[in-house]
Every structure is written in C-alpha cells, then in structure tokens.
C-alpha cells in the first residue's frame, strides 16, 4: 500500500535519483581514509575530537573538494551542511576555496576579478546551509530534507556539525529515563538510517569530545572499554572503533546513543600534535572503518589556504 502511493507521487527527477544512484565519495581524500575504503553511498563518517583539533577545518577541506568543479580537481557534487554549532564560517570556506579555483587563472592574468568571483559563486551554489538550534528542530529538519534528497540527485553529502551539540540539553530534558533523554537522537539516527538506505547519501558528522576517559593510558585501555559500552551484550561489536584509542584514548569515550553508534561506518579521531619550531600547530587524524583492519593515520597542518597533509 505504502509503496504504491509513494510511487504514484514520484516524478521523473525522483525516479532518476532513486534508480541512477548517487556518486560515491570513495576518493574524496586519500590521506584520511584507508586505501579503497573511502566513504561509499550510505556510509556514515564520524569525526571525533576535542576543541581545536581540526575537525571543522577538515570538513571545510572535504566540502571544498566536493563543490569544486571537475576541471579543478573537485567532485562537483552538492552538499547539505547542517550547522548546529553555529561554527560555519563562510568567509573561511571562501578563503580555502579561492586559491584552489584560481591556480590556473593566475597564469592567464587576463581573467577578470569578476569572473573568478562568478566561479566562487557557482561553487557555493552547490552548497546548502541550514542552522538548527535544538534536537527537535534537527529531527524535523532532517524529515523536511528527505524531499530535498529525493529531488536532487547531485546532492551526495550531508554534513552535520555537530551531532552531539544538544547532548547535555537532551540529557537534562529527558528526566531520569535514559530512553527519553536519547529519544530525539535515536529518532534522528533511525531516520538517517532510512535516508541512507533509500537515497544513498554519505553523512559526515562531528562529535565533540566532552567526556574524559578516566583511568586511561596503556594497559587500562581495555578496562576503559567496559564503561564505554554499558550494554555490550548486544551483537554489535565496537572493537573496530577502539583500534584508534591508543592514539588519543583520553578523549575517546563514545557517549552518544547506541542508535547513532550503530550506523557509523568510519570513525576519524582527531588530536592535536605538538607545536613545531616555527610555531605551527600539527594535527593528526586516525581513521578506522568497519571494513578494514588497522588504523590509517595521517598528520596535517592548517595553513591560510586550508588543510595541508604531510
């Protein structure tokens, strides 16, 4: 019954979106993701790290790669950016975007400033931005976006920065019951799961490291895993995500709803490295996935023109 009604109301564009499938983002960034295990349609990548560990900057790097035209080395796909942290800095994104767009323009010299401005606009046209200020709004917005995913086959990437923004407010709002506390995030995760299955978008979401793993370091690593998974009786195994723990175990605690953790397929752990002699802050990312064994590590620094991998 349901299927018949939906199919009747489906238009050509929607049918195309459903049948054609979206582009995968497998090759989005070889430095971060392990060989051949980049995010495919329906994958969820979680970016986890403390404040100032380069999460948002890395997102900008990846978003830039998505919205750049193909002749500038981009993927030329559309991106939906859900900003719950109010950290999205459009001016910064343009700063990152411009040099990558204009590399050849400089040689030509003749290219007018207006033309390059036009190209920036064309890229930004592939980006949609939405701000959410509560978990209810996030849930309802995701429901609303379903139609957008349906109509726009070029929309391949959904960014949620960050999915943990309403954690404390929800914790307190739900009273004593853990189920109530997590209700909205659970609903969001279930909805996302369906959207991923039906539309094949890729989700990048950041989570803030706001919990400290007390009693970490070396041998305590295994012990620290136990409180992390209070209901580990279920079949869901979390061993893959703990591979990267040795990297920055202190802030690795996964505290969000299990419904969310279940849909995550890639996890990238960010940490701040040392400061080099020329006062440059180094960052590192450790990626684990459900499909690969081991940890893919990469280190980068942030320059005026965005993330630079080393």
């Amino acid at each position: 019954m349901t299927t018949t009604t939906t199919k009747v109301t489906e238009n050509g564009a929607q049918l195309f979106a459903r049948l054609e499938g979206r582009r995968s983002l497998r090759d989005i960034e070889a430095h971060i993701f392990p060989d051949g295990a980049g995010p495919l349609q329906g994958n969820v990548v979680e970016f986890h790290g403390i404040e100032g560990s380069g999460k948002t900057e890395t997102l900008f790097h990846l978003v830039t790669r998505c919205i750049l035209p193909a002749d500038r080395g981009g993927l030329e796909v559309e991106v939906m950016y859900v900003d719950t942290d109010y950290h999205f800095d459009m001016l910064r994104l343009v700063t990152v975007l411009e040099p990558r767009l204009g590399e050849e323009a400089k040689e030509e010299e003749g290219v007018a400033a207006a033309e390059s401005e036009e190209r920036v606009r064309a890229c930004l046209g592939r980006l949609s931005l939405v701000h959410c200020s509560s978990s209810v709004q996030l849930l309802l917005t995701l429901h609303y976006l379903e139609n957008t995913f349906c109509c726009r086959p070029a929309l391949c990437l959904l960014v949620i920065d960050s999915i943990s923004a309403f954690y404390w407010v929800d914790r307190s709002g739900g009273g004593e019951s853990l189920a109530k506390q997590e209700a909205n995030l659970k609903k969001c995760s279930e909805l996302l799961e369906r959207l991923l299955r039906d539309y094949g978008v890729v989700v990048f979401a950041t989570t803030h490291a706001i919990m400290r793993n007390y009693g970490q370091s070396g041998h305590a690593d295994a012990a620290a895993m136990t409180p992390k998974q209070p209901e580990s009786s279920s079949s869901f195994s979390s061993s893959w995500r703990n591979l990267s723990s040795s990297h920055a175990s202190e802030f690795d605690k996964a505290y969000l709803s299990r419904a969310w953790q279940k849909i995550v397929t890639h996890r990238v752990l960010f940490s701040k490295g040392e400061v080099t002699q020329d006062k440059r802050q180094m960052f590192s990312a450790a990626c684990t996935t459900t499909k690969t064994i081991g940890v893919k590590r990469s280190s980068f620094c942030v320059t005026e023109a965005g993330v630079r991998f080393l």
Binding site: L124, S128, L129, L140, Y144
Partner: peptide, 18 residues
Amino acid sequence: LAQHTAFPVSGADLYEDL
C-alpha cells in the same frame, strides 16, 4: 513540518548576505 523546520539557504546567497 514547514512551521518547525529550519530552511536551507544556498551557499551563494549566504555569501552574498555575509
């Protein structure tokens, strides 16, 4: 839904506004 959701803005428009 229309009453309670936040609406997406195109990046190009937002840049213009900013």
